[in-house]
């Protein structure tokens, strides 16, 4: 658990920055949005990792077993709703991208800026 635990944190750090890199270095708007989702997924992973208790199980009371150790339910609640909110906001972003494509004929950031300058 010890190495795996620290590895979870590292994967969080790398995923976070891979997503952020796509947001700042890529020019395609859809690619930026996918990068943002990766960033978001990294945050989800961190919350769920933090809520894990060693030797615990999912926080659902089973009738047969007596006293058991449960993982922390609170981060799970926060992330569960965040996932659905995330897809809704992503859909809104995609809607804006589709409208940009219809107005400008492109979804590349540099080409949009050139059209704006004219």
């Amino acid at each position: 658990m010890n190495f795996l635990g620290i590895y979870y944190y590292w994967v969080f750090a790398i995923l976070l920055m891979v997503g952020f890199y796509a947001v700042i270095a890529k020019l395609n708007l859809i690619k930026k949005l996918i990068g943002l989702s990766l960033f978001q997924a990294a945050v989800f992973l961190l919350y769920i990792t933090v809520g894990k208790v060693e030797g615990g199980t999912a926080p659902i009371f089973a009738s047969a077993a007596g006293e058991r150790l449960f993982s922390n339910p609170l981060p799970q609640v926060l992330i569960l709703t965040a996932i659905v909110v995330g897809i809704s906001t992503t859909a809104l972003g995609l809607g804006i991208i589709v409208r940009i494509k219809e107005e400008y004929g492109t979804i590349e950031e540099q080409e949009i800026q050139e059209i704006d300058r004219q």
Binding site: K26, L27, I97, K101, T106, I107, E108
Partner: peptide
């Protein structure tokens, strides 16, 4: 469905 309405490829990959 958003790809079908916009583009399939990136033009210039990096800024």
């Amino acid at each position: 469905s958003a790809l079908a309405l916009s583009a399939q490829h990136e033009h210039a990959p990096y800024s």
